[in-house]
């Protein structure tokens, strides 16, 4: 980071950082990149199950955001906006994949594509508890991968990333009530899937 630039003060409100980045302030943009890149990667990875695709999506999203930033009218909406860009890039990619009929549906195969570290339990954890924990987690990620893309996006945005119903609705172009319904369907499928898997 550039020390001459005050953009990175820990106490600067995000709205001000976004406004500076809109003006082309690189240190401010870098601050936003660092704030969001890993969150977006975690979302994209869970959406796409492919490390390179997820990295591509995050890189494209943040690059596109740099170009489109000046058009963002509400600086406080940056978080929702960047999540929306990333989610829709993931959904586009999944649509392209399914158009090529290359979607992997066999859970075993999905597992082999998962990154080793992605489901690893913490080393210091109690072995029994961590086996239980890993099993639950594996079960959840396996079931998540069988959900329709929009349901998966909905679940990840709400339950893993804590985004609001209203924001998820805007992202997926559905109303907040439909968001609730989609989440409920996802929850039921996860419940069914996990009980089968155990």
């Amino acid at each position: 980071m550039n020390d001459s630039n005050p953009a990175c003060d820990a106490d600067t409100d995000e709205g001000s950082i976004v406004a500076r980045a809109q003006d082309g302030d690189l240190a401010a943009f870098e601050h936003l990149v660092h704030t969001y890149q890993d969150r977006l990667f975690r979302l994209a990875y869970r959406m796409l199950n492919d490390r390179t695709d997820a990295e591509d999506v995050v890189q494209e999203t943040l690059t596109a955001s740099w170009r489109a930033l000046p058009m963002l009218s509400d600086v406080k909406a940056f978080g929702g906006w960047i999540y929306r860009l990333a989610t829709n890039k993931c959904l586009d990619l999944l649509r392209k994949r399914s158009a090529r009929a290359e979607t992997i549906t066999d859970p075993a195969e999905i597992h082999s594509t998962l990154d080793d570290g992605a489901t690893r339990a913490p080393l210091e954890a109690d072995p029994v508890a961590s086996a239980e924990w890993a099993a639950q987690q594996d079960g959840l990620t396996t079931v998540l991968n069988t959900l329709p893309a929009v349901q998966r996006a909905c679940w990840l945005l709400r339950e893993i990333h804590g985004r609001s119903y209203a924001e998820i609705g805007v992202t997926l172009k559905i109303n907040p009530t439909t968001v609730r319904g989609t989440l409920a369907r996802a929850r039921r499928r996860i419940a069914e899937g996990m009980s089968q898997w155990r």
Binding site: R42, T63, Q137, L140
Partner: peptide
């Protein structure tokens, strides 16, 4: 529980981060 565990493990898993060379390309 599985959701919370997934959220926490992804959050603290050093593999679940964007590699530095991607950040460098963006910047």
């Amino acid at each position: 529980e599985a959701t919370v565990a997934l959220r926490e493990s992804d959050l603290h898993n050093p593999e679940m981060t964007l590699p530095a060379e991607r950040t460098n390309s963006i910047m």
